[in-house]
């Protein structure tokens, strides 16, 4: 459905996007993650034909974007970061305009009704867009991307500015859409990405820092398994007993819960389950476990690890400090 090869965008000596490649099959949902200035929006602008890449190739449904942009754009629906709206039009008029732009010729009325129903905005169809709340505006932004039922949807932060109930609704809409559409979405809200996306690309400094499913990403970054355990007993004895359990690499008290009860962080080797030996050893020593919880890395931890490890290399930081700033200016000028 989408094929991207060696995509590069340079602004003078600065490479905003540096040779990224990926492919997406029909019905896949891809999440773009990355800190501000990582090149997400630049990549999305190139995918939608707004920016011409310096190098590389983009194919949408097999059509080369540089060869036949008009035809390729017919298969695209795009929601930019700021939802595009004409405030002086009613919702219905605006969608009609979108239909004409996207060359929906037959059944314009039905198409508008379908989209209004899908996003649950039938009740505001006759109202002026400028009088609507932020949540509705965002949904109308998504609505215009859906006009003409395009094969590929590119959504730049689709749930920004919505309340939790609406976020869930939009998430459900995206899941429903993923049955017939290929979707690329970018987001800062990490649980959202892990909930909706089949695959995640973490971008940093114009390059793909990591790409995999949310599950695999978190797994590959787990270098040890951590348990959070509440144990009753004198602290020194507990520390001594726990560290004698085979597989435990470190143990440290975290906080006191009540008298003689502490919470400990116990780390073990990654491929070893230390819960059973821990339980029996402590039971034998008459030190009851009151609570035990396995801590997992969240996608957030992975994201921070990937993006901060690279940022803190001192020479790199020095090298990249100035271009980073220039990049953000360039982007602002573009908008």
């Amino acid at each position: 459905m989408i094929e991207v090869q060696n995509l590069t965008k340079s602004y003078g000596p600065l490479r905003a996007v540096n040779g990224i490649s990926f492919t997406l099959e029909k019905g896949e949902v891809l999440g773009f993650l990355g800190p501000n200035g990582a090149g997400k929006s630049t990549t999305m602008n190139m995918l939608t034909g707004l920016l011409l890449p310096t190098e590389g190739m983009i194919k949408i449904v097999g059509i080369d974007m540089s060869e036949d942009p008009k035809k390729a754009k017919k298969h695209l629906g795009y929601l930019p970061e700021i939802p595009p709206l004409y405030p002086d039009m009613t919702v219905e008029e605006f969608l009609e305009f979108a239909c004409e732009l996207k060359e929906v010729k037959k059944g314009k009325k039905e198409e508008i009704q379908r989209i209004l129903g899908l996003l649950n905005i039938k009740n505001v169809k006759g109202r002026l867009i400028k009088n609507l709340s932020k949540g509705y505006k965002q949904r109308i932004g998504i609505a215009q991307a859906l006009v003409g039922n395009p094969d590929v949807l590119i959504l730049d932060e689709p749930t920004v500015g919505l309340d939790p109930k609406q976020i869930r609704e939009i998430r459900d809409v995206i899941k429903e859409l993923s049955q017939n559409h290929t979707i690329i979405l970018s987001s800062h809200i990490l649980p959202e990405v892990s909930a909706v996306c089949d695959r995640i690309i973490i971008m940093n400094k114009g390059e793909i820092a990591a790409t995999d499913t949310a599950e695999n990403l978190t797994k590959s970054f787990e270098t040890s398994s951590t348990l959070q355990v509440q144990i009753e007993g004198p602290i020194d004895d507990v520390l001594y007993t726990v560290s004698s359990v085979s597989g435990v690499t470190s143990v440290a008290p975290k906080e006191q819960i009540k008298e003689n009860v502490y919470e400990y962080l116990i780390k073990g080797a990654v491929d070893l389950d230390i819960r059973r030996p821990l339980f029996f050893t402590l039971a034998d020593s008459k030190m009851p476990i009151l609570r035990m919880e396995q801590k997992r890395l969240s996608l957030e931890d992975v994201f921070l690890q990937i993006t901060t490890i690279e940022e803190t290399t001192p020479e790199e930081m020095h090298e990249n400090l100035v271009p980073e700033e220039e990049l953000s200016h360039e982007n602002m000028d573009d908008l």
Partner: peptide
């Protein structure tokens, strides 16, 4: 158009 982000919508559509 630029203020309301419409340029992006218009130019990502099949319009010259």
């Amino acid at each position: 158009d630029r203020k309301h982000g419409m340029e992006k919508m218009v130019f990502s559509s099949p319009v010259s």
